[in-house]
């Protein structure tokens, strides 16, 4: 997992450190490691994929394929934005 510090240094964090905090090897300040390495997080990711497919199929059945894909991608973007909050 690549971590980017505000000091400009890029370094690798281990899988166990995902979602946690590490000290930057460049400036020795704490940096958040984005993401979550969590069973619940995996379930949420699976639910998001199922949700994207469900939204795409649902909108496609009421409208047309491009609108369905557009709405599915919109839903995926929304899920991604929510995930950034963690």
């Amino acid at each position: 997992m690549r971590v980017y510090c505000d000091c400009g240094k890029m370094f690798e964090a281990t899988r166990a450190q995902v979602g946690g905090i590490v000290n930057c090897p460049g400036c020795d300040q704490s940096v958040d490691v984005p993401g979550l390495n969590d069973p619940v997080w995996r379930a949420i990711q699976c639910a998001a994929v199922v949700g994207i497919l469900a939204v795409t199929l649902l909108v496609t059945s009421f409208s047309n394929v491009p609108t369905g894909i557009f709405c599915g991608l919109g839903f995926g973007l929304l899920m991604w934005l929510i995930s950034r909050a963690f």
Partner: peptide, 26 residues
């Protein structure tokens, strides 16, 4: 003190000294 994950089972908690903005342990 912040958790790395949502579920408490086998969870790790990182401790940061806020004055130095430096992780001190977990």
């Amino acid at each position: 003190v912040r958790a790395r994950q949502i579920v408490d089972f086998s969870a790790a908690y990182d401790m940061v000294d806020s004055r130095e903005n430096k992780k001190i342990g977990a």
